[in-house]
Design a protein around this nucleic acid. Structure first.
Lengths: 212, 212
DNA sequence: ACGACTTTTCGAACATGTTCCGAAAGTAGC
DNA sequence: GCTACTTTCGGAACATGTTCGAAAAGTCGT
C-alpha cells in the first residue's frame, strides 16, 4: 500500500557506481546523483539514510570486487599481507576512509582482511584482547597514513604552499638541533612511501610486547 | 594608502579565541566569527586565507600556551614522552587535526615536540632518513587514533547505530574463526584506550629495525 | 579641491549535505 | 466511485565555506 516507488535503493547504488566510474569520487554528490536518476535530490533520503550510509553501501560492493590474494601461512606475514591489501584498497578511494573513521570496521565482504589480521595475531599467541588491540593499532596507523597522504596531495594539487615551508625557513639551530640537521631534506624525506616498512616494524613491536 | 582597515588579523584571532572558549570549537564558523566582530562574513577573507589558515594560526597560539614538561634524557623515553604530549594536546581539539593532516608539521611554538621525537631518534643512532621516517610513522598513528576516536565519539553522541553491529550480528564462524571468538567482546575491547601501549610498541619496533 | 589609485568591506551568489512539510499517487474499505 | 489511509516524492529552506564584483573610504599627486 502507499504510493509506488519510482526509485529503488539498487537503482541509486547503480547510478552512484556509474558516476564513480565515469567522473570520479569527487563528483559523487547528492544532487548530481539525483539528477542522474532524474529525481529530486531529497527523494534519495527515503532510500538512504545519508551520504555516509550511501558510501558504506558502495564500499561493500567495491570490497566484494577486490582481488583476494591467498594469505601467507606464517601468522606474522599474514598480518602484514592483509593490512597491506586493506591499505592499498583504501588508498585508491580515500573518500570512504573519511566515513570509515567514524566506525572501525569494514563491511562483511571485506571482513576477511580483518580476520587475517586478528586471526594472525591469535595464531601468534596473542590473547583476544591483544589481538584486537593489534588490529586497532594497525587500523589507526593505516587510516592516518591514507588521510595525511590524500589531503596533502589534494592541497598540493591546488597549488597551495605548505605551512611547514614557512616553519622550516627560519629554524633556530640552537633550539632545534635535530631538525636543523635535516633542514631542506625534509620535503624529500616526507614524500617517501614508508607504509610497508612502518607496518612491519609496528607488527614486530606489538608482537614483541607479547612475549615479555 | 587605501581604505583604512576596520579589522585586523589580531582582532579576528582574538574573537575566535573568545568563541572557542565560550561556545566550543564546533561553533567556530566564519559567519559567527564575523558576527562577533560586527563585520561582514566575506571581510574575513581579506585577513585570513581561509578557515584552515585561521585554525592554524589559532593552533600556534594554543600550542604556545601548552604546558611544556621536561623531556626525559633517555632518547627512547623522550620520543614517547614528546609524542604523548602531542597526542594529548591534539585529542583535546580534534578539529585542528583535520587541518593538520593536510600538512605534516605543527607550527613553531609546537616544534619542540617534533624536535623531541626526531632528536630522540637521532640520539638512538638513527640516520636522518630513519629519524624522519620514525617521526612520520608516529604522526600517522597519532592522527589516525585521534580522528577515529573523535569521529566515532561524535557519531555515538548522535545516537547513530554503529555499522559494525550489523556486521557482527551474523558472523559465519567457519569463515571468520578468529572474529567469531571475539564476538560480542568487540565493542568493549575497541573502547579501550591503548594509545600509549601502541606507541611504545611502535617505537620499539622502529628502533629494532635500526640495529639490524 | 579634484581626480586617480589602492585597499577594505560586504552583499549576492554558488555548491554542498540535510530537514521540513505539503503535494502526489497509489491501495483498501465501503 | 468515493473516502481514508499510506507511502513516496520533491520544492523550499537552512547552514556551511567560499568566490566575485561592485561600492566605500581613505591617501597621493597636481
Amino acid at each position: 500500500m502507499g504510493r509506488p516507488p519510482t526509485t529503488s535503493r539498487e537503482q541509486i547504488l547503480e547510478a552512484a557506481r556509474v558516476i564513480l566510474d565515469r567522473d570520479g569520487w569527487e563528483k559523487l554528490t547528492i544532487r548530481r546523483l539525483a539528477a542522474e536518476l532524474g529525481v529530486g535530490a531529497t527523494t534519495l533520503y527515503h532510500h538512504v539514510r545519508d551520504k555516509d550510509d550511501l558510501l558504506i553501501q558502495l564500499l561493500e560492493h567495491y570490497a566484494g570486487r577486490l582481488p583476494r590474494p591467498a594469505l601467507p601461512d606464517d601468522p606474522r606475514d599474514r598480518i602484514v599481507a592483509a593490512a597491506t591489501v586493506m591499505h592499498d584498497a583504501l588508498a585508491a578511494w580515500p573518500q570512504v576512509v573519511e566515513v570509515l573513521t567514524a566506525d572501525d570496521l569494514l563491511g562483511e565482504p571485506a571482513l576477511w582482511m580483518v580476520e587475517g589480521i586478528v586471526g594472525g595475531a591469535l595464531d601468534c599467541g596473542c590473547a583476544p584482547e591483544r589481538a584486537v588491540e593489534l588490529y586497532r593499532n594497525i587500523w589507526y596507523y593505516t587510516v592516518g597514513e591514507i588521510l595525511v597522504r590524500a589531503r596533502a596531495g589534494r592541497r598540493a594539487a591546488e597549488g597551495r604552499p605548505r605551512y611547514r615551508d614557512s616553519v622550516f625557513a627560519n629554524l633556530d639551530e640552537s633550539r632545534f638541533p635535530g631538525l636543523a640537521g635535516i633542514g631542506e631534506r625534509w620535503p624529500e624525506l616526507t614524500a617517501r612511501d614508508t607504509y610497508r616498512a612502518g607496518l612491519r616494524a609496528f607488527v614486530d613491536g606489538l608482537l614483541a610486547q607479547e612475549s615479555k
